[in-house]
Design a protein around this nucleic acid. Structure first.
Lengths: 135, 135
DNA sequence: CTTGACCTTCACATAGATGTCAAAGTTTAG
DNA sequence: CTAAACTTTGACATCTATGTGAAGGTCAAG
């Protein structure tokens, strides 16, 4: 698909799609006329990138992460140097920290809303999932 | 404590501590000479702020979140307008999305490292916590 | 053939968090 | 008293992701 469609389907401006490509986060073929051509899978890829960016990861780190999806067996041992492994271990710790931090805040917000007399605004999922101990 | 100590204990530059105050994220008393004076609790507060910032939240949202910690009962009903509740519900969804996204990436990285012959770089926690199905 | 909706690259501007430095007051050690 | 180590405010720079617009090529519909 061309960039316009990818943009429509993901809600991401074309400007950003080109930027992500420049940063090595997504790839595209070129048609004879120079237009970019994306595979169907680009939609999911872009959505993931957006999620990670909005979670505070930089394009550099995201490139790192994307670089190791789908790598297996022989390939894996070859491409994963000791040094890369250490970088990744550090990133792993950073990810855990972020997850913990966001989770605590999520619980705070959820609880606040439940107790606020405005629980109506909560999607059904929340009220059911959080059997808050009675006051 | 004064700003220098808070900075040393949190690893956050004084420049940033003043910025967080300007953004309404932390508060401080002033000594007779004009120096800022922070309570012990500021250390934890700053650490939380750092975590949230590194997770992609803006100071605006963080201010929102911090504004509702420790609010209870009567106070709560009064301060939580319908409108605020809706903002918070939206933030809650955004938080869930980020958590999901980061969690998926964390699992990818962890699994990658486990399979990479470089599991040594993993803190003990990981290997134990993730009983990965054997190949 | 022209118009409108695409696409290309390139450049410049903005916003938010952060770095860095300057000028000046305060406090403590020597 | 003076020097060193704090503190204050304020200005200006930087980085990253993003907005915006210009100048021009491509293509399908009329």
């Amino acid at each position: 698909m061309r960039i316009g469609e990818l943009s429509r389907r993901t809600g991401v401006p074309t400007r950003m799609l080109r930027y992500y490509e420049e940063q090595g986060l997504i790839a595209s073929e070129r048609r004879s006329n120079g237009y970019r051509d994306y595979p169907e899978s680009a939609v999911a890829a872009v959505e993931q990138i957006r999620g990670l960016l909005s979670s505070g990861l930089t394009t550099r780190v995201i490139r790192l992460l994307l670089g190791m999806e789908g790598v297996e067996g022989e390939e894996l041992a070859r491409t994963c140097s000791r040094n890369l492994a250490e970088s990744l271990a550090a990133e792993l710790d950073a990810l855990e920290a972020k997850i913990g931090c966001l989770t605590r805040s999520r619980d705070t917000v959820r609880e606040f809303l439940v107790r606020s007399r405005h629980a109506e605004v909560l999607g059904d999922a929340h009220v059911v999932l959080a059997p808050v101990a009675a006051d």
